[in-house]
Design a protein around this nucleic acid. Structure first.
Lengths: 200, 200
DNA sequence: CTATTTATGGTCATAATTGACAATAAATAG
DNA sequence: CTATTTATTGTCAATTATGACCATAAATAG
């Protein structure tokens, strides 16, 4: 009887538009007008399909908690059986990915606002900690004799490089910094192998 | 004849208050009311002593360009003659510094807003690039035989760890991440020594 | 075709932020 | 003491963001 509901579809689109606006303007700078224009709908429609600003933020937090984690796990599931670490580094620090990763920009914006918007802190924290754990798993499998402390350090270093190369690229840093990030990541891994070789 | 001017003193205080507010609330979240309250003056006084919002941002950019660079150079000048790298890492990743470094939080907030406020991008960029250059100098002196690419990677890695440990600490990550950051930094340096030893 | 539900847009009220001007108090040179 | 400059506060207008309600159009079941 009723007109078919577009709520699921529109909600996704609007939430995605909100994510893009937050990545570009920050959480405080992403006004509902921005979101509406980015989503191609009117501002009252944003309210109709998702709700008020708080609802948008909650939806974004749920997005991080669910879709981000799923995307991350898909990435690790798609790594080849051999050369997993190399493939992972290649993916994380490929120039095309680095310059077009809205996920990282969104994560940066949410991190910057985490203390003001507590509802986004928990999903972000669990996502990052799980990301770290997956990298640690790969590193441990790659260098079984490396110490847990070194594995934890290398994983955190790779994550930091991944986040920072995106943040700093917004400043218009020279191209060589992208190469430096990849070099550092590979050296952190090589150091694990050296240490484990030496410990044998 | 005139009443003595407090402009220099008050300008500094207000600019420092603005810096603290930006570090805490982000550039968009730092309202003039916040700044006035943080500085202990009225909002019209903020306008009287520094100017409008744009003037505040320009003053902050100048602050980064001048005081930040001076503070950074003072740090490197104070490093001991021997064990300079170790002292630098100790300083950058000491728990007390990491948890109380408003400079890094401010830098993060400005980086996040660099694309929206172009006037802050250039000072930030030059500060970071000079910071990177000073670290590279130390690393090159410490491991003369290391390749320039590895030195650049290690320097960028240390900078990334330095920035990220602060950003992530706002999420309430466990204490061990601080230790992981320091471990990663030291391993990046150790890798330079190993490579240079091997190249001899 | 009719009724019901949803989509979409219009509009107003309210709060927050900012810019700007006016007014008063204070301090010092002469 | 007087004049001049500065400090400080009060206040209002304009802009913007947001929330909320209402009206209209559209689509589908029956």
């Amino acid at each position: 009887m009723p007109r078919p509901s577009l709520k699921d579809q529109r909600s996704k689109e609007i939430r995605a538009a909100f994510a893009r606006c937050v990545a570009r303007f920050g959480l405080d700078g992403a006004t509902l007008e921005h979101v509406a224009e980015e989503a191609g709908v009117s501002r009252p429609s944003v309210r109709h399909f998702v709700g008020n600003r708080e609802d948008l933020i909650d939806a974004l937090a749920a997005h991080v908690q669910q879709d981000y984690q799923a995307k991350m796990e898909t990435l690790f599931a798609w790594l080849p059986q051999t050369g997993r670490i190399e493939a992972l580094i290649e993916f994380m620090f490929a120039p095309s990915v680095v310059s077009s990763s809205e996920d990282v920009a969104l994560a940066q914006a949410l991190m910057a606002a985490a203390d003001r918007y507590p509802s986004v802190a928990a999903p972000l924290k669990s996502w990052i900690m799980e990301f770290d754990q997956l990298i640690q798993n790969e590193l441990s499998a790659h260098a079984p004799n490396a110490s847990p402390a070194d594995v934890a350090g290398a994983s955190f270093g790779i994550l930091s490089l991944y986040f920072n190369i995106d943040a700093l690229s917004q400043l218009g840093l020279p191209e060589r910094y992208g190469a430096a990030a990849k070099t550092a990541a590979l050296n952190l891994i090589a150091n694990l192998e050296d240490a484990s070789d030496g410990a044998d």
